[in-house]
Simulated scan of single mutants.
Amino acid sequence: METSLTIAQVAQRTGLTAHTLRYYERIGLIAAVSRAPGGQRRYASADMDWLAFLLRLRETGMPIQGMQAFAGLRSQGDASVSERRGMLEAHLAEVQARVEALQQSMQALSTKIAHYRAVEAKVKTKRPSLSGTGPEGKTSDDEHTSQPKQQQQRQPALRARAGQTPGSRR
């Protein structure tokens, strides 16, 4: 890599706009970038490494305030390593929770898709109902709710703790 890159080159390589790069510098996410004799920003390899990490934090959903706090701790050097590690551990736990939730959603979607494939196979082998519903006006979706079974089982317990019976609402 070249010894220094212009803001246009960095924008092209990172996918950030020049405006965003200047904004990141202004709010303290990026330390003051060195300048060429004409005043143009020149990004060094270390700047690019830091930008890559910031983009990773952004991609994992860390808010700008969190990134600013992390950048502030980073500027303190090794004295803040424990705090930075703690921040990253907390953020990792949040990311893992989101990944688990997405995996549950993916499983629910896969189950629903499999159900629809089975319904389509049945429809191809027999004449479909004119109303689009099965017996007693139920659709094929009535048998397969969008909630995972685990969540369905927990709901009566949650209502009981809240003082509700399965048929009551507040």
Rank of each mutant, 00 (worst) to 15 (best):
A79S: 10
E136I: 15
K138V: 14
H144R: 06
T20L: 13
G72Q: 04
P148M: 12
T17Y: 04
A118Q: 04
A44M: 04
L57G: 01
R35D: 07
V119D: 05
G61A: 06
I7K: 02
A36F: 12
R41M: 01
A157S: 15
K126N: 04
S80P: 04
G163C: 13
L73K: 10
S82R: 10
R117G: 09
Y24K: 01
D141M: 12
T20C: 09
M67W: 11
P63K: 04
H91Y: 12
A121E: 01
E94F: 09
P156S: 04
I113L: 00
S45M: 10
Q155R: 12
M1N: 06
G134P: 07
Y24F: 10
P156E: 06
R74S: 06
Q12L: 10
E120Y: 09
S82M: 09
P63L: 01
Q155P: 03
A108P: 00
H91S: 00
Q104L: 10
R74V: 13
H19L: 11
R159C: 02
T139V: 14
D141P: 09
Y23T: 09
R74H: 09
R169E: 08
G38M: 03
R26N: 04
T20H: 05
G66M: 05
V119W: 12
K122E: 14
R22M: 12
P63M: 02
G167D: 05
G28I: 11
S140N: 10
Q150N: 08
S105C: 13
R74C: 03
G28W: 05
H115V: 14
A101Q: 00
A32S: 12
